[in-house]
Lab assay of single mutants.
Amino acid sequence: IRKQWHEDITQDLRNHLVHKLVQAIFPTPDPAALKDRRMENLVAYARKVEGDMYESANNRAEYYHLLAEKIYKIQKELEEKRRT
């Protein structure tokens, strides 16, 4: 379902936000690492998460909020795993 606010969101912005999700899960300073085949699954997962939020959000603010919440949860989980 195409929503009115979707018209304001460019593909570049969506790609940028997918990249932010990927960085939250696997922070790497090396952009070449993103071309690694093992990263493809991670990028696919991040695209799916972003797509789900894009579809479920009712406006741009909610879209950003859902993504920020997801990134926060991912970082929290990773922190907890590092501690144990």
Rank of each mutant, 00 (worst) to 15 (best):
T10R: 02
I71R: 06
E79S: 10
T10H: 09
E79T: 08
R83D: 15
N41P: 09
E40K: 09
R60Q: 11
A24T: 05
N15W: 03
L66C: 10
S56R: 14
E77N: 10
M53W: 00
Q23L: 07
R47I: 02
A46D: 02
Q23T: 08
A68E: 15
D30L: 05
V43M: 06
I25D: 02
I71P: 04
R38L: 05
E50F: 03
N59K: 03
N15T: 06
L66S: 06
R37N: 07
E80M: 07
K3W: 01
R14G: 04
D8Q: 09
D36G: 12
P31V: 14
A33Q: 15
K3T: 05
Q11N: 11
I1T: 08
N41E: 10
D12C: 03
I71F: 02
M39D: 06
N58C: 06
K70N: 03
A24S: 09
E55K: 08
E77A: 10
E55P: 04
Y64C: 06
K81Q: 12
L17G: 11
K76P: 04
V22D: 01
F26K: 15
I25G: 06
R60H: 06
Y54F: 13
D36C: 05
V18R: 01
E40D: 11
Q11D: 14
P31E: 13
K73C: 11
E69M: 07
T84A: 09
E55F: 08
T28I: 09
Y63C: 01
N41F: 11
P31T: 09
R38K: 12
I25S: 10
R82V: 07
R37Q: 13
K3F: 03
V18I: 09
N41T: 03
R82M: 07
K20S: 08
N41M: 09
D30R: 07
T28R: 08
L42H: 05
G51N: 13
Q23K: 08
H19T: 11
R60V: 10
K20T: 05
W5C: 01
P27N: 09
P27T: 07
Q11C: 04
A24F: 03
E80P: 09
W5A: 07
I9F: 08
E77L: 06
K20V: 05
P27W: 05
R60D: 09
E55V: 08
L66M: 14
I71C: 08
R2G: 08
A61I: 06
N15R: 04
H16Q: 15
A61W: 05
Q11A: 09
V22E: 00
P31A: 10
V43L: 12
E50Y: 00
K48C: 01
L67D: 05
V43Y: 13
A61L: 06
M53D: 00
E69G: 07
E62R: 02
V49N: 00
E40S: 09
A61K: 11
R14S: 02
K35M: 09
R2C: 02
K73H: 12
L13T: 13
I25L: 14
E79A: 10
